[in-house]
């Protein structure tokens, strides 16, 4: 049973390796959260269709409201093309500036009550309002179990006359009602 010995060594090595892994510091994962949020946003824009009065332009305007490191990642959209439309990026700080925005991302740093006011003000507006707090906008990126998830309010989307593809809906947590 000589081979049992090598097997034992193998197990021991695995064990040591796992223990060694613990030593690795717990990294701040903020940058990664930002990247994933940005990835989500970009996909939301791909899977949404806007009413005719906002679509004619040759560009797709993505707007952001909030103050944080996230701007750096948001900026990456500006080099991209979605559905043959060039993506443009705008940073806003008032609801007036939101005019023309296809997507508006409102960041949690604004605070919950302010985000709710923004939604109330813009809910008839054909802008896809995305937030990162629960029930903040039409689509909300939220921590869900193991990873980041997103919830969709289909009724809010229809109020804004925005159509979201089923590919998007099937991955989302659907919240009925407004």
């Amino acid at each position: 049973m000589l081979n049992v010995r090598s097997f034992f060594i193998f197990l021991l090595l695995s064990f040591v390796a796992l223990q060694a892994g613990v030593v690795y510091a717990e990294d701040a994962t903020q940058a990664r959260v930002h990247k994933i949020k940005a990835g989500f946003l970009f996909n939301f824009a791909k899977f949404a269709t806007w009413p005719p009065e906002v679509t004619p332009s040759n560009s797709l305007l993505m707007c952001m409201w909030g103050e944080s490191e996230f701007k750096k990642y948001f900026q990456a959209f500006s080099k991209r093309v979605i559905k043959k439309k060039k993506v443009e990026v705008r940073y806003v700080a008032t609801t007036k500036e939101v005019n023309g925005c296809h997507v508006l991302f409102v960041e949690h740093t604004l605070g919950e009550s302010k985000i709710r006011r923004i939604y109330q003000e813009l809910r008839e507006h054909p802008t896809l309002l995305v937030t990162d707090i629960v029930s903040g906008g039409v689509i909300n990126i939220i921590p869900g179990g193991k990873l980041l998830r997103f919830e969709i309010y289909p009724d809010r989307a229809s109020r804004a006359r925005i159509k979201l593809s089923s590919q998007l809906l099937k991955l989302a947590q659907i919240v009925d009602g407004e």
């Binding site: 613990v22 990294d27 996909n43 193991k146 980041l148 590919q167």
Partner: peptide, 29 residues
């Protein structure tokens, strides 16, 4: 003996330098 309490990271998705090229499934992991 394996410890279960070590660092937890909610974002384990496939790393890609170009995060905008990842599709939703990949992003959700």
């Amino acid at each position: 003996l394996v410890p279960f309490h070590v660092g937890s990271d909610p974002l384990l998705a496939e790393e890609g330098e170009d995060f905008l090229d990842l599709d939703l499934e990949t992003l959700m992991q």
